[in-house]
């Protein structure tokens, strides 16, 4: 198995883990963490799969650089919303009754 394919396989597992996390976890900060894990998984698939023959490919690498910046923008926005929500309601979750962290 090539290095690229190995990391691509790790990527799909990370993606599935993160996607399930975003849906299942209640606390907003945890959802945001899960979203980032999910994104990292997709990035690994993008580069790893393209490089499974062992040749570096600058095209998906540039795409992942773009993706990382988009992800940090989305994370900052989500954290801003979560903080504003917490400041307003004192809660860390959107649905009531699951408010433990």
């Amino acid at each position: 198995m090539s290095t690229g394919l190995l990391y691509a396989l790790a990527g799909v597992v990370l993606f599935a883990l993160g996607a399930a996390g975003v849906i299942v976890l209640a606390h907003l900060l945890r959802k945001i963490l899960a979203f980032n894990v999910m994104g990292s998984g997709a990035f690994l698939v993008l580069v790893g799969l393209a490089q499974r023959t062992g040749v570096p490919d600058p095209v998906p690498q540039a795409m992942v650089l773009t993706g990382i910046v988009v992800a940090v923008a989305a994370t900052a926005l989500a954290l801003g919303l979560a903080r504003a929500w917490h400041a307003r309601t004192g809660r860390g979750t959107l649905t009531e009754g699951e408010d433990r962290d």
Partner: peptide, 24 residues
């Protein structure tokens, strides 16, 4: 669903043939 997705994706990646276009 998450586990099923992961398993299906792993199988799909293992049997994926080489790409037709080579951008590098």
């Amino acid at each position: 669903v998450g586990v099923a997705l992961a398993v299906a994706l792993v199988v799909a990646l293992l049997e994926l043939p080489a790409a037709a276009i080579h951008l590098p």
